[in-house]
Simulated assay, not measured.
Amino acid sequence: MRRLFSALAVTGFLLTSLPAVSWAQSLPGFTLFSGVKSENQLPFRLDFGGQTNGWDRYRLRIPAKKMKVAASEFVVSYPNYYKGKFDPKKIEVRVRDKKVPLTEAKWDRENGVIMIYPQEPVPAGTSVEIVLSNVRNPAFGGIYYFNCYTVSPGDAAALRSYMGTWILSVS
C-alpha cells in the first residue's frame, strides 16, 4: 500500500510540475511597466526555458493581424546589452507550420540586428513564426526587448514597418 501511495505522489508531482516548466517562457503573459503597449507585444516561446549561458531555440511569432502588407524582409533588432549568440545557418521563417525558403539570413553582431530575406515575399494576413535555433543565451540574465520590422516588396526606399516587440526573459 505504501508503494502505491508513493507512486501516486511522485506521479502527481511530475504531472503538476511539468506544465509549469513548459509555460515559463511562452507568450508575453502579463507584463507590468514594460513601456511597450499591450497591442505591440508579440507572442514568443523559448523552447528550452531561457536559462543563462544555455542553448535555446527562440520561436518569435507575428500574428496575422499584424501582417497588413506582404514582407520581403524581416528585421529583428535587439539591445546592445544582449550578449547571446545566434547561428545564421539555423534561422527559419515558418508560415502555417511550413518552412519558407530563404535567400539569406544575416546576423550583424555590431549593430544588434538579424536580417532575414525570404525567396518569395510572405503574403499579407498570414501568421509568421521566426525560428532562431542554436541560440546561445547570454551569461547574465535579464529582460531583452527584441523588435520586429518588415520591408514590403518593391519598397524603393526600403522603409521598415514596425510589427511589434517580443519581451524575452533570460534567467
Rank of each mutant, 00 (worst) to 15 (best):
S72A: 14
R57T: 15
F48R: 15
G54D: 13
P63L: 11
N40S: 10
R45K: 13
K89V: 04
E73D: 11
D47L: 12
G84I: 12
R59Y: 13
S72T: 01
K83E: 12
K90Y: 05
G84F: 01
K37N: 10
I91E: 03
V93N: 02
S34A: 07
M67Y: 03
W55R: 15
R59E: 13
R59G: 07
R61K: 11
I62W: 00
Y81K: 08
D56C: 02
R45D: 11
L46H: 06
I91F: 08
L42T: 04
V76S: 01
K90V: 00
V36K: 08
F86T: 04
S34G: 14
V76P: 00
T52W: 00
V76E: 00
R59C: 04
N40E: 10
Y82R: 02
T52V: 15
Q51T: 12
F48W: 13
L42R: 05
Y78V: 00
P63A: 12
W55Y: 12
R61V: 05
F33E: 11
D47A: 15
I62Y: 05
N40M: 10
S72H: 00
N40H: 10
E92Q: 14
R45G: 00
S38M: 10
Y78P: 02
E73V: 02
V69K: 14
Y78H: 09
V69P: 02
S72V: 01
A70P: 11
V36M: 08
G84W: 04
R57S: 14
G49E: 07
V75R: 09
V36R: 06
R61Y: 07
V93W: 02
P43F: 08
K85S: 13
Y58P: 01
P43I: 09
R57H: 07
V36S: 07
F86N: 08
D56E: 14
Y82M: 02
P63V: 05
L60I: 08
I91P: 02
G50M: 09
K90A: 15
L60M: 10
G54S: 15
E92C: 06
M67H: 02
K37A: 12
K37M: 06
K89T: 13
K66T: 06
K90M: 15
D56R: 03
F33T: 09
V93E: 00
R57P: 00
R57Q: 14
G84R: 09
G35V: 01
K68Q: 11
L42D: 04
